[in-house]
Design a protein around this nucleic acid. Structure first.
Lengths: 343, 343
DNA sequence: TTGAAAGCGATACCAG
DNA sequence: CTGGTATCGCTTTCAA
């Protein structure tokens, strides 16, 4: 009544354990007839490989590296916290998570880090950075050396990375646009704050947002966007100007990082509580802002999923195993005050 | 440089493998000094138990049963599909998923099913059903017999079930209420469709919805709710009447199942596209309705998470292992047309 | 209270 | 092409 094992298959097929293993793992050197005998036994007995035994026997150990921008950004901090948190349980599953921080918005630093990676020491790497030609080439070289690479949060399609782990940022921008259009009452103008022109995620969000605003809310006028470089101080300064220059401002879409600048500016500026504010990532300060009614909605991606998915994809790449695309799809989460998960 | 093993610990502590195992698993019959010696070695070597070896050695096999209402409800169908899908990978992890369907809204049938469960054959059970005194007692008896029990989707707090797997339904109702208030323009009345007065999830959603509407949208008049018993035909009939009797209807909150009745009625009734409609669960027909602009938002819970979380909790209960409450929290998802995940 | 040794189910190496 | 067989890291009798 128990689950059949390779031994049962071997007996049923009248072959040895080693042969069963060869067939099961598609290794060469087995006659077609033998393969068929084994497969028939597998079918008949309803054999399913045992995960524990398998991973015990292949005593593989995975070392995975996360390259993140060195910023005070709360979103990156959440990602780091996840690495910390999942580090233990990962070790339990024979994989070590390492992390290295590189200067943000600095392609060269990223390239150098990638180029020093030793395939003997690192099996896979997750890259969160800008998409420039230099980065693209460095990723290609890294893969050439036999290291698996996934793009994290911001895609690097031109680099032929193995996978991208993150949300569809165009769709995220559209979502923000739809919410903005439905939340704002009456006509007026809308400000979009982006991070960097080189950050693919920021660009894509902007694109989606603009498209929906044009389609669905022609009464709202989207101003030229300001580039905040995820810098709270900078954002604060620019924003103060914009607020003065545009008395008809009805909403702000903060599509990148640096929300603390936005928040401090908003709380100064005579509490413009009528402004509809939509931002990204459910960070501690975003929670507070949602709670206090300063932010109206947050578009987010679950950092836990991001890290878990990255690990699975990197391992699958290393082992040349297939993946389940559905499981790896990161959802675009919408949060309002009412559906905030307990912290 | 590799991960230390129990053998390393044994050597370092100057004891045998068996003793290390006793200490690691808190088994009795070891002197305090010995325990301390082992623990010190564990600390020093940074020992982390190997998941694969552990589960291979304890050759435990888990049989988990899901008791679901036998309905044509798309949400339940999604749950069943998940069981099917996760069945294989579960078997791979030494756990078999079984399912049994009982008549919906029928506490007695549920009770009978629970009472026939044999602890020799079933290790844990997930119950999706109404909370009545009879059900409560049956759950208690089931646990007494040594079977782990979790309440699925609808909580059964009075039954002292081991865990509840599902969303905070009051918060889900509040979320729907907030969206309704922000999406509807102007004044008018709102209809709430519930399922059964006995279904705790439906009751809680209604409660949250009403509270937010009262707080935030006094200009909207929430009508007496209609009970649809998740029955498309019934819902359709009742709805037709309500639509005629309330020309000022501005929105509908469908807080339970039976959306197909709602949809067919809406498409008949002269396409009242101005109605704001919010429903629950991202099922195929809900996707279509969102896409076509018939539904404005969907409040949902991920059936994949529901099933995975149930499995983890049931196993943890059986093994008397601690859980990570954060990982088991099911989120309240909000979907609009823009953030629909690819099917 | 402690230790020795036999598995658990798969992998991988070495012969034949 | 196929078959033995030693492991992998931990659990679990059975003795001492």
């Amino acid at each position: 009544m128990l689950k059949p094992t390779t031994n049962d298959i071997a007996r049923a097929a009248g072959v040895s354990l080693a042969t069963v293993d060869r067939v099961l793992n598609g290794r060469p050197g087995v006659r077609t007839v033998t393969i068929e005998k084994v497969n028939r036994a597998v079918e008949e007995l309803g054999y399913v490989r045992d995960a524990a035994a398998t991973s015990l026997a292949r005593r593989r150990f995975y070392t995975l590296l996360f390259i993140l921008p060195k910023t005070t950004n709360e979103f990156v901090a959440a990602l780091e916290a996840q690495l910390e948190e999942q580090g233990d349980s990962s070790l339990y599953q024979r994989t070590a998570l390492k992390k290295v921080l590189v200067p943000p918005f600095d392609p060269q630093a990223l390239v150098e880090t990638l180029d020093t990676l030793d395939p003997e020491e690192v099996d896979g790497v997750a890259v969160f950075g800008l998409e420039t030609p230099a980065v693209r080439d460095a990723v290609k070289r890294t893969r050439m050396r036999g290291i698996a690479v996934v793009a994290l949060v911001a895609d690097l399609p031109s680099s032929e990375r193995d996978y991208f782990v993150g949300i569809d940022n165009v769709a995220a921008g559209r979502t923000a646009g739809q919410l903005m259009g439905r939340f704002v009452r009456g006509a007026g103008s809308i400000l979009v704050i982006t991070g960097s022109r080189l950050a693919r995620d920021h660009l894509e969000r902007r694109k989606g947002f603009d498209a929906v605003m044009a389609e669905a809310s022609p009464q709202l006028n989207v101003l030229a966007s300001v580039e905040g470089r995820d810098d709270p101080g900078l954002i604060r300064d620019v924003l103060t100007e914009v607020l003065e220059a545009n008395p008809d401002l009805r909403g702000i879409y903060s599509s990148a990082g640096g929300n603390s600048g936005l928040l401090s500016c908003l709380s100064d500026s005579g509490m413009r509580r009528d402004l509809v504010v939509i931002a990204h990532e459910l960070t501690p300060s975003a929670r507070t802002a949602l709670h206090g009614g300063v932010f109206d909605a947050i578009i987010s991606q679950d950092t836990g999923h991001l890290v878990r998915s990255t690990i699975r994809l990197l391992k699958a790449t290393v082992d040349h195993l297939p993946i389940d695309p559905k499981q790896e799809r990161i959802r675009i989460d919408i949060y309002m005050r009412e559906n905030l998960p307990a912290p």
